[in-house]
Design a protein around this nucleic acid. Structure first.
Lengths: 215, 215
DNA sequence: CGCGGGTTTGATCCCAGTCAAGTCCCGTGG
DNA sequence: CCACGGGACTTGACTGGGATCAAACCCGCG
């Protein structure tokens, strides 16, 4: 099998994998660490489009040609595999199964963004936070990052979560405080103590997409 | 070339192409008419995830297996082509270019959903409406649905737009009224009279991130 | 003429944004 | 060793944008 990897990338917390507006010719898969994809608005607003966890594909929009519509920023030290987008055609010609997996991933991503849209559009602050914490915990658990005690690493700042849920920093903080008996997030680790109550709050039917095929 | 079409579907305004929770084994491409993809929350909330215009692929998430995460509802009489998702593998094996195009479309969709997320998260009511009207008009113009006078067909209800932008119906109405000098939407047709002013309001352009220090 | 769905408008309320301090903690340097 | 500074997190007081409630209004239609 041909090797599509075009190198491995290491980035430190706070650094960018690529910037909004860049004409990047790569896309990536995350191996270790966590980060965010952010979009900036002309007025200074900052939206975290989604979180980047190990196993995610990052920057697939690069196949659209043109400037990247968002920046990818690391929140903890990250390791990613880099691929050249112009060799994607080869992949599609020579490795239909992997191509299919790629589409599958894109569809899964779309599925998740749809849920996020519903959250931003319909849920209040408490519901948003409950939803986000559940999703994050579930996702990280699924990729085996949970410790014995059931807590998962979450290296983000409250500001990141605030910008992800479209809430102000202060209100995010206050909302996290209200959720404290159900979930705690401190020292970069998130623990869910009452999943049922959280799900109740979040109005989640918590149906996640099935396991993905390997790329 | 093999024929993947598995029929043509006609649906009337208000009817569903598929319902949330359905185990559909099809996906579609829209040929005529317009509709919405909606998600429902347990508390009765309703979010319009996006609008369906001619040329769009609908229900590609079906490749994820399992229940559909949203419903597709027609707002005007629609005509769509139906495809069987289980034959997608064939497509990937026999027609890499079309497979690539499919991924391209999925990526474009993801790109758009990302913009929507930024809108719901960061923009206020006036900015949201301005953004939505611009996007819709631009999109419909691009597929040649604009008349001589520059107006495009928009068969939705104010409720649909409200649910798309996460605003209440009444506030949507009032906001549309405030935008009246810049854009009018009546009798199912949308006309933009002052594109520049609208874009100004919507804060669209967003080329480069403002010089906020990283991290 | 009455009815129902969609649109418009006014009055009131409250969730979340903003402003402003203050605390905790860690790294740096005197 | 402590003083200092800066970044993240907390907390309280105030404000306002948008939700909610409640009526009209404006059709097309039976």
């Amino acid at each position: 099998m041909m090797n599509f990897r075009a190198g491995e990338v290491h980035i430190a917390p706070g650094e960018a994998l690529y910037h909004e507006g860049d004409e990047t010719s790569y896309f990536y898969t995350a191996r270790e660490g966590q980060g965010v994809r952010v979009k900036h608005l002309p007025n200074g607003g900052r939206q975290v489009v989604n979180f980047i966890f190990p196993g995610d594909v990052v920057g697939l929009q690069a196949i659209l040609e043109g400037a990247a519509s968002n920046s990818a920023i690391a929140a903890s030290p990250m390791v990613l595999c880099r691929f050249e987008k112009r060799r994607l055609h080869e992949l599609y010609r020579n490795s239909p199964d992997r191509a299919y997996a790629l589409t599958w991933i894109a569809a899964a991503e779309e599925h998740f963004l749809g849920e996020t849209i519903a959250t931003l559009g319909q849920r209040n602050a408490l519901q948003r936070m409950a939803w986000a914490l559940l999703k994050i915990h579930h996702r990280l658990s699924a990729i085996g990052l949970a410790r014995e005690e059931g807590d998962v690493p979450l290296p983000f700042k409250q500001r990141d979560l605030a910008d992800a849920m479209g809430l102000s920093l202060v209100h995010t903080n206050k909302t996290l405080a209200r959720l404290r008996p159900l979930a705690t997030w401190e020292n970069g680790r998130l623990r869910i103590t009452n999943k049922e109550a959280l799900a109740e709050l979040a109005l989640t039917d918590c149906a996640l997409p099935p396991d993905r095929p390997l790329l």
